[in-house]
Amino acid sequence: MTAGRILLAALLLPVAAWAHDYPTAVRADYVLGCMASNGNTRLALEKCACAIDAIAEQLPFSRYEEAETALRMQAVPLGERGAMFRDPPEIRRAVEALRQAQAEATLRCF
Rank of each mutant, 00 (worst) to 15 (best):
D53I: 00
R99H: 12
L12T: 07
Y22H: 07
R63Q: 09
R99F: 02
R42M: 14
T41D: 09
C34G: 03
A44Y: 10
L32S: 14
E104Q: 10
I6G: 04
A19Q: 07
M1S: 12
Q100E: 09
D87Q: 14
A103E: 07
R72A: 15
R5W: 12
A101W: 00
M73L: 06
K47Q: 15
E65M: 06
E57K: 13
A36G: 04
L78V: 09
F61C: 00
I55W: 04
R81C: 12
I55E: 05
K47C: 11
Q58E: 09
F110N: 12
N38S: 13
L32I: 11
L12D: 01
D21M: 05
I52G: 02
A67W: 00
E80Y: 13
P60K: 08
L71S: 08
Y30P: 08
V15R: 01
A19I: 02
E90I: 09
T69G: 03
L45G: 06
C48A: 13
N40T: 03
P89D: 10
S37V: 06
R27S: 13
A10N: 01
I55C: 04
R93G: 05
Q100N: 10
Y22P: 01
K47H: 14
L107T: 11
A16H: 07
R81L: 15
L8M: 13
E57R: 14
R93D: 14
Y64Q: 00
V95C: 03
A83Y: 02
A97F: 01
A28S: 15
L71V: 14
F110D: 11
V76F: 08
A9K: 05
R108S: 13
V95F: 02
G39N: 06
P23V: 06
D87V: 11
P77A: 04
L78W: 05
A19D: 07
R81M: 15
Q102T: 05
D29C: 03
L32C: 07
